[in-house]
Computed example of a mutant assay.
Amino acid sequence: MSGLNLLYVEDDARLAQDVAQLMAAEGNRLSWTASGEEGLKRAGTEAFDVVILDRMLPDLSGIEIVRRLRDAGIAAPVLMLSALGRAENRIEGLDAGVDDYMAKPFDPPELVARVRALQRRAAGQAHSAVILFGDLECHIKARTAHRRGRHLALSPKEFALFRYFMENAGEVVTREMLLRNVWNLSFDPQTNVIDVNVGRLRRKLEEGFDAPVLETIWGTGYRLVAA
């Protein structure tokens, strides 16, 4: 990881200093603010390779920050750090538009590796700005979805699902694949979060159109098909 421009929003000054030293040792530039409002402003107006975001801030929660960023169409990769590390906490963060979620305390080398992975993923997106399949369009940088030219209003998690289905169009996508690649979970939280989100996405993809595009493969998962 060389020469990345990072933003860290964290109200624990000592932890922020430790992370700043860790990232500097890797040759990166880290800007720090303890204010959620200031972090939101900077993330919305400056170009950062990765935003590292504490969840519990005194003035504006990390969840609210990432929701506002995604609503504004800002797609900078966000890694959330939080003492709240239960499955439901991670799911809430990922549903809000967070790209990765780490529980505190964390292993410093793992933090470096995850920031590196987020930057690589974001860099790869720039080479594939639009994915086309049938009458569907997935605009990666704009984080927008279209069918037959009609814009589909998707939430951040619905867009993440749509993008993953588009990247694997025509192939069977299992629940395990969705948990690992969309929710960043290595285990099944035993909730209906996948079914609910896929159901919402299906309605938005198919409502007002005559042909279905998202099939349920019973007992296995789902498959995106061309209309």
Rank of each mutant, 00 (worst) to 15 (best):
R200P: 06
G170E: 15
N168F: 09
N184T: 14
G170V: 14
D195Y: 06
V173N: 02
F165G: 00
Y164L: 07
G170K: 11
E206A: 09
V182T: 07
V172D: 10
R203C: 10
E171C: 13
E171P: 13
S186V: 13
R175K: 12
V173I: 08
K204N: 12
L185R: 03
F165T: 00
V173E: 02
R180H: 14
M177K: 11
L205M: 10
R180Q: 15
V198E: 02
S186L: 15
E167H: 05
E176Y: 11
T191A: 01
T191H: 01
M177D: 10
M166Y: 01
V172Y: 12
V182R: 01
V193I: 06
F187E: 09
R203W: 15
V173A: 05
D195H: 06
V173F: 05
S186K: 15
E206L: 12
R180I: 08
F187I: 12
R200Y: 10
Q190I: 07
V182I: 11
F162L: 10
T191V: 02
R202M: 13
R163C: 04
S186D: 14
F165V: 03
N181T: 08
L179Y: 07
A169N: 05
V196E: 08
W183K: 02
V172M: 13
E206P: 07
R180E: 12
L201A: 05
V182S: 02
V173W: 01
V193Y: 00
F165Q: 00
R203I: 12
T174N: 08
N184M: 14
R203S: 15
E167P: 01
G199P: 05
Q190S: 10
L205S: 08
D188I: 04
F187M: 11
F187D: 12
G170H: 12
L201C: 06
M166E: 01
N168L: 07
V196M: 09
R202H: 09
P189S: 05
L205Q: 10
T191N: 01
F187H: 11
E207A: 10
L185H: 08
Q190L: 09
F162Y: 10
R163G: 02
N181R: 14
N168M: 04
F165L: 03
L201Y: 06
R175W: 04
R200Q: 15
E176R: 09
R175A: 08
F162W: 06
V193W: 00
N181L: 09
P189D: 01
E167I: 03
F162D: 01
T191P: 01
V173H: 01
A169T: 04
K204W: 11
P189A: 02
L178H: 06
V196H: 09
R202W: 12
L201I: 12
N197C: 04
E167F: 03
I194T: 01
L178N: 02
D195M: 05
L185V: 07
